[in-house]
């Protein structure tokens, strides 16, 4: 996620440079043919351009809005994950009434499984192997058990559920508390499912294909509408207008995939670290990992 005030040109330019460069050459050719070559039939009235530009503006606005909805939903889901992680830790610490010698172990196990869940969910969404990180959080037998599962975060939720069931069977929880634990786990399952839905379901391809096609077509028409009035200055004006449409097209494409390992992603590394710090402090640990700060204006 970009947190710096301004977006550096080095981020925008590589994405639009090829299209803009080709358009500039095309615009220059049109201007030269019209002014120097006498091909006056190339000029066209501005009316079709205005109408097409308005239609594309609506189309691009709708597409960008749909992409933003996905991006914002992803961020909201991770905000919910932060809240439910704290809730589960609070429940584990305050609702279980185990004997003094066992209470510490039960709480630690549940809270660390929750930390492992958020780490593994982040890795799951990014296509990353979670085990090097989990090795520092969970004991080896648990890791070995988790390696058998394709969906590690779902397996961790199952382990947590089994731990809670064991506590219930031993009489450390009553059925009301068990239900509240189960509600929290269900919310975590829902968050994971929603993140997987965003990750695995792209925006309909028509939303991607037609705006791009129409923007390209529009950019080809722009110099034809400008050349009669602007002459050899056409490439400059035409490229600026084209840039505005191309950037709108690019923004939508950037943010439509919030778990795609780009700078536009939900900052899952930072969020998972914040959750870990909070939960370890809830457990009473004094030494917690350092906070993550934006690197060069970007949070990952």
């Amino acid at each position: 996620m970009i947190v710096r005030d301004h977006l550096p040109w080095t981020r925008v330019w590589p994405q639009v440079s090829k299209r803009l460069g080709m358009l500039f050459i095309y615009d220059f050719s049109i201007a030269a043919l019209y002014v120097l070559g006498g091909f006056h039939f190339l000029a066209m009235t501005a009316l079709p351009l205005t109408m097409l530009g308005s239609a594309i503006g609506v189309f691009l606005g709708f597409r960008t809005s749909s992409a933003y909805d996905r991006w914002w939903e992803a961020r909201t889901l991770w905000g919910g994950l932060v809240n439910y992680s704290r809730t589960l830790a609070r429940q584990a610490i305050t609702l279980i009434s185990a004997p003094a010698q066992e209470i510490r172990e039960v709480r630690d196990t549940l809270v660390k499984l929750q930390i492992a869940f958020v780490y593994s969910l982040r890795c799951h969404l990014r296509g990353q192997n979670p085990f090097p990180e989990l090795g520092n959080i969970l004991p080896d037998p648990t890791l070995a058990a988790l390696r058998r599962f394709r969906n590690v975060p779902a397996a961790i939720l199952l382990l947590m559920s089994q731990e809670i069931r064991t506590a219930f069977d031993r009489g450390w929880l009553d059925s009301i508390r068990l239900t509240s634990f189960d509600d929290t786990l269900t919310q975590l399952t829902n968050i994971q499912g929603a993140c997987e839905r965003i990750k695995n379901t792209p925006l309909p391809r028509q939303y991607d294909y037609f705006p791009r096609l129409l923007v390209n077509f529009f950019c080809l028409l722009v110099p034809l509408g400008f050349v009669e009035g602007l002459g050899l200055a056409t490439p400059i004006a035409s490229t600026i207008v084209s840039f505005a449409f191309i950037v709108l097209d690019t923004i939508g494409r950037d943010i439509e995939t919030p778990f795609a390992n780009t700078v536009h992603d939900t900052p899952m590394t930072t969020l998972t670290r914040n959750i870990e710090i909070d939960l370890r402090q809830h457990l009473g640990e004094r030494e917690v990992p350092a906070e993550i700060h934006p690197v060069a204006g970007f949070m990952y």
């Binding site: 090097p132 990180e133 090795g135 520092n136 590394t269 990992p289 700060h293 690197v295 060069a296």
Partner: peptide
């Protein structure tokens, strides 16, 4: 130094 510490924060959990 903060930037370098925050880069690849995942590695803090590596051995």
């Amino acid at each position: 130094h903060r930037d370098l510490q925050s880069f690849f924060a995942e590695a803090d959990h590596f051995a």
